[in-house]
C-alpha cells in the first residue's frame, strides 16, 4: 500500500498519487461529501465495471453494506478526510481486502482525530498541539503515532510533570 512507508520513527501515513489498477475487474470509488478532482479523473479514465458512492456522515453499517458485494479481484479508491478514509479502509480489511486493493488519496484536510490515552475519548478536528481533550480536559501532546485501526493519532498529557509547564502551540501537518 502506498501509505505504508514510514517517515522516521513515526507511523504517520504518507500518501502518494493514486492510479487506476488496470488489472482489476471492478472498481469502487468512495468519497466523503465531495468527489475530489483526483478521484473524478481516475473514475473517468476507468472503462471497466465501476461504481461511485458519496457519503455524508456515513454510519459504520452503511459503510459495511457498501462493501458487501465487493469481489476478490476489485479495487477500492477512497477520498475524504484522513479519519474517514482509514475508517472505510479498516472495514475493507475486515471484509478481507488486501492492502494493495485499497488506494487512498491524500486527505482533503489536515484535521486529525486525537485519541486520549487517559480517558480514551477521541477528539475531532485537531489542527494544533497541545490540544484540549473533549473528554477529560487535559492538554494533550498530539503525536505522529497513527493507529490504523482507529484512524486517530495518539495523545498524552503534555504537562503531567509540571502543570505550569505548557509548551508553545504548534500547527500539526
Amino acid at each position: 500500500m502506498q501509505t505504508e512507508q514510514l517517515n522516521g520513527v513515526v507511523s504517520k501515513p504518507a500518501y502518494s498519487s493514486v492510479e487506476l489498477n488496470p488489472k482489476s475487474r471492478f472498481h469502487l470509488f468512495i468519497a466523503e461529501q465531495n468527489v475530489t478532482a483526483e478521484m473524478q479523473s481516475i473514475y473517468d479514465e476507468c472503462s471497466s465495471d465501476k461504481k461511485i458512492a458519496v457519503y455524508n456522515d456515513a454510519s459504520d453499517t452503511q459503510l459495511i453494506e457498501s462493501l458487501a458485494l465487493f469481489p476478490l479481484a476489485g479495487t477500492l479508491y477512497l477520498a475524504g478526510t484522513e479519519p474517514f478514509i482509514w475508517r472505510v479502509a479498516s472495514h475493507a480489511r475486515q471484509a478481507g481486502m488486501c492492502p494493495e486493493q485499497i488506494r487512498m488519496m491524500t486527505p482533503v484536510s489536515r484535521e486529525r482525530h486525537l485519541f486520549c490515552c487517559h480517558c480514551y475519548t477521541v477528539t475531532e478536528g485537531v489542527t494544533y498541539s497541545p490540544y484540549v481533550c473533549d473528554g477529560c480536559g487535559l492538554s494533550l501532546e498530539v503525536t505522529d503515532h497513527f493507529a490504523r485501526l482507529h484512524s486517530a493519532y495518539f495523545g498524552y498529557q503534555v504537562n503531567a510533570e509540571d502543570s505550569a509547564d505548557m509548551p508553545a502551540k504548534r500547527e500539526v501537518s
Partner: peptide, 10 residues
C-alpha cells in the same frame, strides 16, 4: 492470479 486481477498478497 495476475490475469484475473487477484491481489498478489493473497
Amino acid at each position: 492470479a495476475d490475469e484475473m486481477g487477484i491481489p498478489p498478497s493473497a
